[in-house]
Write a protein that binds this DNA or RNA. Sequence first.
DNA 1: CGTTCCGGTTGATTCATGTCAAGGAAGCGA
DNA 2: TCGCTTCCTTGACATGAATCAACCGGAACG
Lengths: 249, 249
Amino acid sequence: MTLVPSRRQPANATRCERCTLHARCLPLGLELDALESFEAIVQNPRPLKRGEALVRQGGTFESLFVVRSGSLKQSVAQEGQRDQVTHFYLPGEVVGLDGIGETICYGSVVAMESTFVCELPFGRLEDLAEQLPKLRGQLYRCMSRELRNDQRMMCLLSGRTADQRLASFMLGLSERFRVRGFSPYRFHLSMSRSDIGSYLGLALETVSRVLARFQQQGMVTVAGRELTIHEMEALVALAEEGVGRHSGG
Amino acid sequence: MTLVPSRRQPANATRCERCTLHARCLPLGLELDALESFEAIVQNPRPLKRGEALVRQGGTFESLFVVRSGSLKQSVAQEGQRDQVTHFYLPGEVVGLDGIGETICYGSVVAMESTFVCELPFGRLEDLAEQLPKLRGQLYRCMSRELRNDQRMMCLLSGRTADQRLASFMLGLSERFRVRGFSPYRFHLSMSRSDIGSYLGLALETVSRVLARFQQQGMVTVAGRELTIHEMEALVALAEEGVGRHSGG
DNA sequence: CGTTCCGGTTGATTCATGTCAAGGAAGCGA
DNA sequence: TCGCTTCCTTGACATGAATCAACCGGAACG
């Protein structure tokens, strides 16, 4: 790599310690000097405009990214089939874990709003992980957490009704906002109804209808993309409801 | 195999080199002495009877396992909801990656037939990985491969018809058998229709019906759990067919 | 300031697939 | 061999969600 990213100005360099996401980010738990080594490989936050691609399907895999602010979606384009959204990424989440060990990227990742990401060139990250057991552990943990998330998603997709999917989806977002210090009751959906539908395996019309019904029932208020949850309990009950589909027997 | 897990006799110890799965297993690519260190942490193959649990949901996570022969299924029991099958494991595949970094196991893993597994205590594996970059790489690769598989699965579950799901499922198995040196055209399904249905998000009756129809159409022959694929092309065409569900627009 | 486009809502209709039910075949222990 | 059980198949029917279609409101744009 002969590129000249301004490594001359340490003053400008990424300081993870000062980042508000520090407590939820990859370098969590690193000692001070380890953290400095880590910061050294982080490319300065890169801005993305709404709709701009961070990763293109089929492009070469080179880096992991951590969302610093904003949000992104990963989607996979299949043979003459509409794109399918596979993940939404919020601040502090790691993009690209599914590309490790591959040369090309499995899906595209696109910003859903103005977004900043920190880039971690994977080769350098790997080298560093060799020396830092804690970083290695963090990487494993991130990946296995994502494996568990995907499994939950598979359960959601294969066994639950539209209502349950939407309820789980909103609860999942709510929780992710909560642990990031935002309100779990009121937040902005940066994705379109169509994205939600694609992600949850529903037609966008169904998403719209179910949200409307939830609102009618007083569980939530949906004003465009502003979501307010009034009855968290009701949503939880719905999401955990024993009887989804093919529950017979 | 009347083996008495005699750990005193190195003569009896696990020898990955001699294992027929060597080319597809975790220690792939390790040099001779590295391989020996690896073998030292492998517990002798453990036998499981059909229906026996290797891992219990909620049990403590301690080890990864590699299937040596036979097959297993992972399933997740949710709140008053029927179990959901999340994975099938064939020889050479690694069980337990989703438990890394957790203390308890997310799902249960049960043998679908007489099965042998090699146990890899994770703590020791991690220590070893610290010294062996190649092993580390293999671990990353396994995990990210599984992430990609799960994503494919999510796409399958959220966007495809019953026919497409079954076609993909059979093709997937076929490929997995092929790379293991078995016939991709004719193999045994060690899982029940109900397991397949659970895995694919379909009612077991639907599985049965679709298989019957595929047979009627001459694409496959299904005799109980013996599957013969006659028209691989047709299955591929079906699986890749552009128009699944909510493809409108 | 109209036009166009995009995202969202809502209604009518269709269809794939779930559910319920009955019965058959195969494996297994007594 | 008999009964029991588990797995599978097949049919009839019900229904949740997709599809098709029309319309609305706001944003972008000439």
